[in-house]
């Protein structure tokens, strides 16, 4: 815990860290760093959109009122940054959907993390790419080898679906001290102590649970 003399700044920091822009920044950073698609932050996106519209209106008013152009351009710069965050957040998600569309549509859990619009986008992407694959390759192959998901009809599982690599390494930071088991069940446990605020470099799979519960953030 912070000592008394630090309380003031800690309070201010915690207040600052719950502002929507900070939340959006965190959602964006997490989304960028995580190998798999994360739950859609719908409420946050809607709030950010509303705020952007509000500031846009304000800036127009400032220009009409003849306020110092320098001040206006500072507001504009701030607005540009927020807009970039929002666009980039949505864009990073779409790029992940493009990359893992077949996997996402196959896995109920992954699909439930998308917004309605993203689901529509994923289905459309998959239909387009399937058509492209069929016309370019699959229809030219012998009968038993024509599906997108399987190498051939005798494959038991879908063995041609690209999946996110959950064993990739991520840089993460813990909000509190945390003990982390680096290995999965059945293996000799190796416990890693994460100190509060210290960045660590670990396998995504190992921090996945702590990350989903919000104890850890990715950077």
């Amino acid at each position: 815990m912070a000592s008394n003399s630090e309380m003031g700044s800690a309070d201010f920091e915690s207040l600052l860290s719950t502002s929507d822009v900070e939340l959006l920044k965190r959602a964006w950073r997490n989304e960028k760093a995580a190998p798999e698609i994360l739950p859609y932050q719908g409420d946050l996106v809607e709030r950010a959109k509303g705020q952007i519209e509000l500031v846009e209106g304000n800036i127009e008013d400032y220009v009409e009122d003849g306020i110092d152009p320098l001040v206006v351009s500072l507001y504009q710069m701030d607005l540009d940054r927020t807009q970039f965050l929002l666009r980039s957040y949505l864009r990073v998600r779409l790029l992940k959907i493009e990359k893992f569309m077949f996997h996402i549509l196959k896995s109920e859990e992954a699909e439930s993390r998308l917004s309605e619009q993203e689901k529509a986008f994923a289905r459309r992407c998959a239909a387009d790419l399937t058509k492209h694959f069929e016309e370019s390759v699959l229809l030219k192959l012998p009968e038993n080898y024509q599906t997108v998901q399987k190498q051939s009809l005798i494959s038991d599982e879908d063995d041609m679906v690209p999946e996110p690599n959950l064993d990739t390494f991520v840089v993460c930071r813990s909000k509190n001290s945390l003990k982390l088991n680096l290995y999965e069940e059945g293996e000799t446990p190796v416990i890693l102590d994460l100190d509060r605020g210290e960045p660590s470099f670990v396998r995504y799979r190992a921090v996945k649970r702590a990350f989903e519960s919000g104890e850890v953030e990715l950077i």
Partner: peptide, 17 residues
Amino acid sequence: SYMGKAGLELNVDMVPP
């Protein structure tokens, strides 16, 4: 069609301003 429904242009602002 996604951008239309989301009401946002996403193919601008590709680098941080």
